[in-house]
């Protein structure tokens, strides 16, 4: 029984990974792509890991997969944040049709521009 529920979780995980990859290809600029990559890949990977845990139970593989879930859930948004901030400071432009960029405005006005690393 657990095998089937695990398979369902893995299937959902792979499906979300697929959406994330399509987003990575279709969306226009770095920041939008980062959105798709972070959200879908996080939940996708967590789904796969949880599915593995359900299939394996409390043995060496299953527990490791379960421990990996919160780790990914915490580190993935942090990495996305670091990438977005680094890209903006290094001067990566938003998509031309973007509505607004308050970060750029504030950097100009307050003279807070930091040198590119």
């Amino acid at each position: 029984m657990n095998d089937y529920i695990g398979l369902v979780f893995i299937f959902i995980g792979v499906l979300f990974e697929l959406f994330g990859c399509i987003g990575l290809l279709r969306l226009p600029d770095m920041y939008n792509r980062l959105q798709a990559a972070t959200k879908c890949v996080t939940l996708g990977t967590c789904g796969i890991m949880f599915g593995i845990f359900l299939m394996q139970g409390f043995n060496e593989i299953g527990v490791k997969a379960l421990v990996a879930v919160p780790l990914i859930f915490i580190t993935s948004p942090t990495a996305a944040h670091a990438l977005a901030r680094g890209a903006h400071i290094a001067g990566v432009r938003l998509w031309q049709k973007s509505v607004c960029d308050r970060y750029e405005d504030d950097k100009k006005h307050m003279g807070k521009e930091k040198p590119a690393p």
Partner: peptide
Amino acid sequence: VLHPAMPIHPGIV
């Protein structure tokens, strides 16, 4: 992502 017209209005607020 799957919508053919891609309904996005991105920006930094």
